[in-house]
Design a protein around this nucleic acid. Sequence first.
DNA 1: GTGTAAATGATGACGGTTTTCATTTATATT
DNA 2: AATATAAATGAAAACCGTCATCATTTACAC
Lengths: 140, 140
Amino acid sequence: MSMEGQDIKKAGLKITLPRLKVLEILEVSEQRHMSAEDVYKALLLMGEDIGLATVYRVLTQFEDAGLVSRLSIDGGHAVFELEDGVHHDHLLCVSCNQIEEFVDEVIEQRQRSIAIEKGFKMTEHSLYIYGICKQCQEKN
Amino acid sequence: MSMEGQDIKKAGLKITLPRLKVLEILEVSEQRHMSAEDVYKALLLMGEDIGLATVYRVLTQFEDAGLVSRLSIDGGHAVFELEDGVHHDHLLCVSCNQIEEFVDEVIEQRQRSIAIEKGFKMTEHSLYIYGICKQCQEKN
DNA sequence: GTGTAAATGATGACGGTTTTCATTTATATT
DNA sequence: AATATAAATGAAAACCGTCATCATTTACAC
Ligand SMILES: [Mn+2]
Ligand SMILES: [Mn+2]
Ligand SMILES: [Zn+2]
Ligand SMILES: [Zn+2]
């Protein structure tokens, strides 16, 4: 059994070809942040005939298992990334859709303080900075 | 012509009953943050037979005109609020869906710095803190 | 190998939102 | 005030990402 197989098994899931292949795509793909559709298309290119419904199912199971995390981008569709255990937030280029990551402890701490001030028990947060990336600025 | 009429006219839109009534709902309603469906239902209660498609259209036009701003809540549907010219972010109760507002200059400044560090020209940002509000904590 | 529960893929349903198109309305012009 | 015309409306269907259903296939404990 491959290393990936272990992760799947630990999650209480059977080791199936669709699951191995979805994990593989997320690992080897150029882009770290992929939509279900992106994963589905990459599988087709790889010659794997795996249904889109299965891709959605598997990604959700991986999310529940903590293998993958889901970003809910403004305006509908979600993107997934391999969970690396380090919380981070995202910068999104509105021109080329490139996604960059950042970690900022000051912001994290301020969020916790605000929740406390307002009497909220914070469960999570969602922060996206939208803008034009360096490359797209240079292009215009 | 009413005060509200002026706003609509300034936006280059004809002053129609649906537009006046949608604006009125947003102004007089108990809840500051309302979905299109919320506005639609409030109009029905008021005895105004305005189609849901029109509510969506008018809200989008008001957004374009800067009269209203749209929050894209995690998990699908949007909520709208009257634009008051002061930027703020939101705390959302995952239990009762109540929405609170906050302003935090430290976070705003950090976001600008991060964008600069990454070479991004920031256009906007979206920050939501999810949690359990005070009242919902006390209830359980 | 066999039995059984779990997983898959095709397809349709779903929910929020937008589009279409025939009809109605606001407003500028006479 | 009547007219002309572009804009706005409402009903309905289309849309889009995602999820549920269900008959068939598969993994894996025995
Ligand atoms: Mn990321
Ligand atoms: Mn608000
Ligand atoms: Zn870019
Ligand atoms: Zn609450």
